[in-house]
């Protein structure tokens, strides 16, 4: 139904102009500038910009270092998303089956979402410390994230996944609550086992929630975990935890190659456009509740 419309010529403009100004100056214009900057290079001596076309992109895609950050980002994002969704779905189903205590369990699981990736990282780097970490001491295998790149990746995936569990569980629980009990009961009468009920009825009905959380977890692991990397590993050892956002920052503000950094920003822009278009295509109504 159409909402009521007030009659005023000026008021709607006055109302929407503040956000419009902020968006234009601090978001749209800088995004346009980064597209532009990605086509230039700054000479080390003069500091003046030279137009180089797609040279920066060419350099990136022929650099093994850059390709490594792409692979690392994919492993990291894939790990956080797949492990995170599987674990939170399992926990949500258990809570939903418990019949009693839903709100208590929800509270008990939701809160790590309030912690920052940096906080999560600081705690996990300690409990997984190779020589005195409490988790390392009970693990049946060796875990040394200071020296071993794969182990460092395990550390940051664990911390990032743990931090996102509560968010995922909150959305999965809401999704499970809307699965009609009568459907499951009918299936049970037809002799369906617990597993059959889950995979034939519950899981398909949760598809919209799963898609939504999939995009949210991808955006989170690609774009919002910078603090975790900066606090814990600084991309090391030997670049094994250097995700794309971290390298973009490093090239821009430490190695001082703005053109190369801007080109990486443009690649990140393509990634986020991909993820969010996917979300809009499959879930028209939802945006980014993070």
């Amino acid at each position: 139904m159409e909402q009521y419309k007030f009659k005023s010529k000026k008021l709607p403009y006055l109302l929407s102009i503040p956000q419009f100004i902020i968006v234009t100056i601090f978001i749209l214009y800088p995004t346009y500038k980064s597209l532009e900057l990605s086509l230039f290079t700054t000479s080390i001596f003069g500091g003046n910009k030279v137009f180089v076309g797609l040279q920066n992109f060419n350099d990136l895609f022929s650099s093994p270092d850059y390709l490594k950050t792409v692979v690392v980002s994919l492993i990291f994002a894939g790990g956080v998303t797949i492990i995170g969704l599987a674990l939170s779905l399992l926990i949500s189903v258990l809570i939903n089956n418990a019949l009693k205590g839903l709100t208590i369990y929800r509270t008990a699981f939701i809160w790590p979402y309030a912690l920052s990736p940096a906080v999560a990282g600081a705690i996990w780097m300690f409990i997984m410390h190779p020589s005195y970490g409490i988790l390392t001491s009970i693990l049946p295998f060796e875990l040394n994230w200071i020296l071993n790149g794969n182990h460092a990746l395990i550390l940051i995936i664990s911390a990032a996944t743990w931090r996102m569990l509560g968010y995922n569980i909150a959305f999965y629980l809401a999704g499970l609550q809307s699965v009609p009990v009568s459907l499951r009961e009918a299936a049970a009468l037809d002799g369906a086992s617990g597993f059959q009920k889950f995979f034939r009825i519950t899981f398909p009905l949760l598809t919209p929630t799963t898609f939504f959380l999939l995009t949210m977890n991808l955006v989170y692991s690609f774009f919002r975990t910078f603090g975790l990397i900066h606090t814990v590993t600084k991309g090391g050892p030997s670049g094994m935890t250097e995700i794309m956002v971290y390298k973009t920052y490093k090239d821009g503000f430490i190695n001082l190659v703005p053109g190369l950094s801007a080109a990486q920003s443009v690649i990140l822009l393509a990634i986020v456009i991909g993820i969010i278009s996917f979300q809009f295509k499959y879930l028209e109504r939802k945006v980014h509740y993070a």
Binding site: T31, K33, Y249, P258
Partner: peptide, 14 residues
């Protein structure tokens, strides 16, 4: 549209 423009995609220019 700004959903598609988190800080990392415009970090130098912002």
């Amino acid at each position: 549209l700004t959903l598609m423009m988190p800080v990392p995609v415009r970090i130098m220019s912002t």
